[in-house]
Nucleic acid binder design. Structure first.
Length: 636
RNA sequence: GCUGAUGUAGCUCAGCUGGUAGAGCAGCUGAUUCGUAAUCAGCAGGUCGUCGGUUCGAAUCCGACCAUCAGCUCCA
C-alpha cells in the first residue's frame, strides 16, 4: 500500500501500482469521467500511469491548464494522423498545444490549401469515432532512431539526436500513427469530441528564417460541441472589435497605398490623439517634467555616436541634405542627449525629467505591419530621466506609479509587466547591471507587483520593465516601458556637477507611458469597441431636433454646448427622429439630445445615452453641468 | 523579408466554364416635418489594385509588381 496526498491535503491509502485512472475512479465516477491526465509529485502523467510510491497526486481535468494542454496535445496528434493519411509524404516536426488552440508543423512537398482543411477534418472525424487507444512506449535511443528512420521522419531523428543522453525517449502511438512525444496524452482519440481547424500558415523550422519553411496548421478543440461553438463565437466577436474595422467605421484613421505602414489620422482620430496628449501633459506637469521637441532628421554622425548605426541601422531611413548624410530618427534619445549636454547641469537639477512627444520612423518588415499596432511612423510619449544611482529606484517607482495611474484612467486592467535582464552582448560593468536590475526589481516588488522575468532579454544598453497590453484576440502588445541606460550618458559624455564640485556621470532612464500613441489608440479602440468614455469621444453630444420647427431651439442648445467646450453636432437633416438616433448610435456618440415641442417649451433636453436608450428629460443647464463634470473628471 | 490567401462603387459584397459590370447601405435631388435604432421616389457613382502577356474578345486565363489579411515566440 502507498499513501496518496490530494491537493486539498487529504490522504488515501491505495494499492501500489494503481493507475491514475483507477485512483480517480476510487474518488468518484464523475471525476474519473472528467479526468484527462494526472500529476504525480508535480509531474504530469498519463491516466494509465501507475502510482508506485507515496506521493501527491492531482487529477487533471478540463478545469486545469495542464488538463487542457494534454487535451490539445492529443488533438494535435489526431490532426497529424489525419494529415499523414491524406499526404503520406508529409514529414512530422513539432506540434504543441497553445493557450486555447494547437498547431502542428509539417514539411510537405506543396503548400497546404485552406480547402484541404475540411478534408483533414473529415479524416479526423474517423479517427475520433474509432476511439483509437493511445499507447506510450519507452524506447532506447537507437530503437527510436530506427523507428523514425523507417517512417522517414527526418526531423524526429534530428530532435532525438539533440536530446540529452539520460533523457527517456517516449513514443506515443494510436492506430498506424506514431510520434516522438514527451506526453502525456489522453487514453484514446475518442475524447476529442469537438474541434475545428482554423488556418494554415508558413512557419520556419525552429522559428529561424535561415531554416526551411514548414506548413503550420492551427486548430482548436474542446470536450464538447457547445464549448467549441462558444469559443468560435468569441473569436467572431473579437473580430468585430478589430481596431482597423472600427477605425474605418468611426472615421478615425486610414492607410493609403502611398504610404504603407504610415497612418493617416482623420479629424475624429485626432481628437483621441490630442486628448491623450493633453491628459499625459497634465500628469507630467504634476511631476515636474519639462517638455522639449527635437528634429526628425539629424546628421548621420549623431547616429554613429549614439550606437544606433551599429545596432539599429536596418530599421532606419536615410537621406541626404547638402551632400551630407542624414538619418530620420528612429528614437528620440540622441536628440534629448544634445539638449541635456547643451548646458552645464548641477546635481541640484537632478532628477531632470525631460519629456518629448517624439515622432519616430522605423523601417519594419512589410509582413509585420498591422493596423495601428505595428506601423512605420509613430509618436512616443517619451521621456528621459537623468538622475543619480542613489535616486534611481525612487525615479523608477515614480514612473511605475505614473504608468499604472494612466492605464487606470483609460480603463485598462488587462496588462502585465515583464522584467528583462542582461543579454549576452551588453555594455557596462556587471555591477552597473546588477544595481540597475535591482532597482527595477525592487521597485516592482515593493509594489507587490507580479511580473514575468525575461532573463537575457534586456536591451544591450540596460535592463528594462515592459508593460504589455492584450488586444481583442488576446495578442499582447508592448506599450509602456522603463529602461535603464548606461550607454548613452557615456557615449555623449554627459556630466553634472556634484556637491563636491566635480563632474559626475548621470544615470539615464528612458520611459514611455502609453508607448506609441498610435498603438495605444489601437488598443483603446479594441478595449472599448469604439465606445469611448465621454472625455475621449470624438463627438460627445449629438443634438437631434424632432423637426425643422425645432431647429432654432436645437441650435441654441448646440451653441450652449459649444460655448461650454463640449464637442457637439447638430443634426439638421430632414430625417425622422428614429433615423437621426440610429445615425448617432452607429457613430457611438455617447449622448443624444432629442429636442422638440416639449423640450423647447420647458427649456429642457431629452437625454438618450448610447447603448442605453432614453434617460428622460432634464433642464438644459443641468445637462451641460453634468456632462462638463463628466468630461473634466475623465469619468470612465 | 518569407509562406499562403485576398484585391470589383465611399462601405459590405454578387458576377458559373473568357462575350466589354450588378445589389444593399452611404452620397446627391425632390417629396415628407415626423417623439427614441432605417419615410418614399428618382439620380449619380467603377480605366474590376497596377503593368505586361495569351485571345477576335480578359474583372474572369498567365506573369511580374503593389497593397491588404493570417502566420513566421510557444520547442519531442
Amino acid at each position: 500500500m502507498v499513501t496518496v496526498t490530494l491537493p486539498d491535503g487529504s490522504q488515501r491509502e491505495i494499492e501500489c501500482g494503481t493507475t491514475v485512472q483507477q485512483f480517480a475512479q476510487s474518488i468518484g465516477a464523475g471525476l474519473a469521467k472528467a479526468a484527462l491526465g494526472g500529476k504525480i509529485d508535480g509531474q504530469t502523467v498519463d491516466l494509465s500511469a501507475p502510482i508506485n510510491a507515496d506521493s501527491t497526486v492531482e487529477i487533471l481535468t478540463w478545469k486545469n491548464e495542464e488538463g487542457r494542454e494534454i487535451f490539445r496535445h492529443t488533438s494535435t496528434h489526431i490532426m497529424a494522423q489525419a494529415i499523414k493519411r491524406i499526404i503520406p509524404e508529409a514529414k512530422l516536426t513539432i506540434g504543441p498545444p497553445l493557450t486555447d488552440s494547437f498547431y502542428y508543423d509539417f514539411d510537405v512537398p506543396t503548400p497546404l490549401t485552406p480547402e484541404l482543411l475540411s478534408k483533414i477534418e473529415e479524416e479526423m472525424e474517423k479517427i475520433v469515432t474509432a476511439a483509437e487507444p493511445i499507447t506510450r512506449a519507452e524506447l532506447a535511443r537507437d530503437e527510436a532512431i530506427r523507428l523514425f528512420r523507417e517512417r522517414g521522419e527526418d526531423y524526429k531523428i534530428e530532435i532525438i539526436n539533440e536530446l540529452p543522453e539520460d533523457q527517456t525517449i517516449s513514443v506515443y502511438s494510436q492506430g498506424e500513427f506514431a510520434d516522438l512525444c514527451r506526453g502525456p496524452h489522453l487514453p484514446n482519440t475518442g475524447y476529442v469530441k469537438a474541434y475545428k481547424l482554423l488556418n494554415v500558415a508558413g512557419a520556419y523550422w525552429r522559428g529561424d528564417v535561415k531554416n526551411k519553411m514548414l506548413q503550420r496548421v492551427y486548430g482548436t478543440s474542446f470536450p464538447d460541441k457547445k464549448a467549441l461553438k462558444e469559443h468560435l463565437e468569441l473569436l467572431e466577436e473579437a473580430k468585430k472589435r478589430d481596431h482597423r474595422k472600427i477605425g474605418r467605421e468611426l472615421d478615425l484613421f486610414s492607410f493609403q497605398e502611398e504610404g504603407p505602414g504610415f497612418p493617416f489620422f482623420h479629424p475624429n482620430g485626432m481628437v483621441l490623439y490630442n486628448e491623450i496628449m493633453t491628459y499625459v501633459r497634465e500628469e507630467l506637469s504634476k511631476l515636474d517634467y519639462v517638455e522639449i521637441m527635437t528634429p526628425l532628421i539629424l546628421n548621420e554622425e549623431l547616429w554613429h555616436q549614439s550606437g544606433h548605426w551599429d545596432h539599429y541601422r536596418e530599421n532606419m531611413y536615410f537621406t541626404e541634405i547638402d551632400e551630407k548624410a542624414y538619418a530620420v530618427k528612429p528614437m528620440n534619445c540622441p536628440g534629448c542627449m544634445l539638449v541635456f549636454r547643451n548646458d552645464l547641469r548641477s546635481y541640484r537639477d537632478l532628477p531632470m525629467k525631460i519629456a518629448e512627444f517624439g515622432r519616430v520612423h522605423r523601417h519594419e518588415l512589410s509582413g509585420v505591419l498591422h493596423g495601428l499596432f505595428r506601423v512605420r511612423c509613430f509618436t512616443q510619449d517619451d521621456a528621459h530621466i537623468f538622475t543619480t544611482p542613489e535616486k534611481l529606484e525612487d525615479d523608477i517607482t515614480e514612473a511605475i506609479d505614473l504608468i499604472r495611474r494612466v492605464y487606470e484612467v483609460f480603463g485598462f486592467d488587462d496588462y502585465h509587466m515583464e522584467l528583462s535582464t542582461r543579454p549576452e552582448k551588453a555594455l557596462g560593468s556587471d555591477e552597473m547591471w546588477d544595481s540597475a536590475t535591482d532597482a527595477l526589481r525592487n521597485a516592482l516588488e515593493n509594489h507587490g507587483i507580479k511580473y514575468k522575468l525575461n532573463p537575457g532579454d534586456g536591451a544591450f544598453y540596460g535592463p528594462k520593465i515592459d508593460f504589455h497590453v492584450n488586444d481583442s484576440l488576446n495578442r499582447t502588445w508592448q506599450c509602456g516601458t522603463i529602461q535603464v541606460d548606461f550607454s548613452m550618458p557615456e557615449r555623449f559624455d554627459l556630466n553634472y556637477v556634484g556637491p563636491d564640485g566635480q563632474k559626475h556621470r548621470p544615470v539615464m532612464v528612458h520611459r514611455a507611458l502609453v508607448g506609441s500613441l498610435e498603438r495605444f489608440i489601437g488598443v483603446l479602440i479594441e478595449h472599448t469597441a469604439g465606445n469611448f468614455p465621454v472625455w475621449l469621444a470624438p463627438v460627445q453630444v449629438a443634438v437631434l431636433p424632432i423637426s425643422e420647427k425645432h431647429l432654432d431651439y436645437a441650435q441654441s442648445v448646440y451653441d450652449q454646448l459649444r460655448a461650454a467646450g463640449v464637442r457637439a453636432t447638430l443634426d439638421v437633416a430632414e430625417d425622422k427622429i428614429g433615423m437621426k438616433i440610429r445615425n448617432a448610435e452607429i457613430r457611438k456618440i455617447p449622448y443624444m439630445l432629442v429636442v422638440g415641442e416639449k423640450e423647447s417649451a420647458a427649456g429642457a433636453v431629452s437625454v438618450r445615452r448610447h447603448g442605453k436608450g432614453d434617460q428622460g428629460s432634464v433642464p438644459r443647464d443641468e445637462f451641460v453641468l453634468k456632462i462638463w463634470d463628466e468630461i473634466s473628471n475623465r469619468t470612465r
